[in-house]
């Protein structure tokens, strides 16, 4: 935007210092990732002999072949897709229905219920984790997909976001549809829901990222190796470098696990940034 703002970095000596600082910070951001990628491309024996060999040829993709061939990483990715995808789909459904209900329909106790839901925004996960864990033990839901998906569905954020969004749509659209003989559900499904696509995208991205990267709940709920999500699975193999199959192999696994989300980020960067920062200020 601003032509004036943009001049904060210009041609003077001070500006060059600022520019240098930004570049330095950029190196700090990128450096560790590039280093990890370089390590993942090194043969373990060569690294053992000379750690500095990471900076030069020869590089190999052997570690990646080993990763694909031997590790559980595929089943973890699969679990993460089921959990994050399922949570996203169900969050969108529940939040849209409830958002429409709170924004547009009247029912006994609406105002009080909405305030209670808003108060739910202030409850951190840790305050309910232990009780939830016990409840899921009673229900036998640990080490299952429902067990991993359900807790995230209770988040009030989606309902809040969708309610706000529905409220911003002119009420005349509902009224026109009602005059057109549409039922309440048809008004929701055919008329209003298609208009909430931007909000669905924001909420979907935010929910998916959150679920994909969630660590605590899968850690305590998915205790069997075959039910690990990617975050828990990777963490389980990486705890002890010394006992592992070699640094290069571990790094290949990490790159393999981190790359999909980074690639998605590169493609949908604009939406993701809007979604995440938009979600934070609400």
């Amino acid at each position: 935007m601003a032509s004036h703002n943009s001049e904060i970095i210009g041609r003077s000596f001070g500006d060059r210092v600022l520019f240098g600082l930004v570049i330095l910070l950029a190196l700090v951001m990128a450096g560790p990732v590039l280093y990890v990628i370089a390590l993942s491309l090194k043969d373990n024996k060569e690294l053992m002999v000379d750690p500095h060999s990471v900076f030069h040829m020869p590089y190999t993709i052997k570690n990646y072949i080993d990763t694909i061939g031997t590790s559980n990483v595929f089943s973890w990715v699969f679990n993460s897709i089921i959990v994050a995808g399922g949570l996203t789909v169900f969050t969108l459904i529940l939040s849209s229905l409830a958002g429409y209900g709170f924004a547009r329909l009247n029912f006994p106790g609406r105002a009080v219920l909405f305030v209670i839901v808003l108060l739910g925004l202030a409850v951190p996960e840790q305050a309910v984790l232990i009780a939830r864990h016990q409840i899921f033990s009673w229900l036998g839901l640990h080490n299952s997909y429902p067990g991993l998906i359900l807790p995230g569905l209770s988040s009030a954020f989606g309902v809040f976001l969708m309610t706000q969004y529905f409220r911003a749509i002119p009420k005349e659209l509902d009224e026109a549809a009602i005059l057109d003989n549409a039922s309440r559900f048809r008004v929701f499904w055919k008329v209003l829901l298609p208009l909430t696509v931007p909000a669905q995208a924001t909420l979907g991205i935010f929910t998916f990222l959150g679920a994909w990267n969630d660590y605590f709940w899968p850690l305590i709920s998915a205790t069997k190796k075959e039910m690990f999500t990617l975050t828990v699975g990777i963490a389980s193999t990486q705890m002890n470098f010394a006992q592992s199959q070699g640094i290069g192999f571990l790094m290949a696994q990490a790159v393999f696990a981190g790359a999909p989300i980074l690639i998605i980020y590169l493609f949908f960067q604009k939406y993701i940034v809007t979604a995440v920062s938009g979600a934070a200020v609400r």
Binding site: P170, E172, L173, E175, A176, V191
Partner: peptide, 12 residues
């Protein structure tokens, strides 16, 4: 049938 001031056409 009603014609609204804002027309209330279904945008999509």
């Amino acid at each position: 049938a009603m014609v609204f001031q804002s027309y209330a056409l279904y945008p999509h």
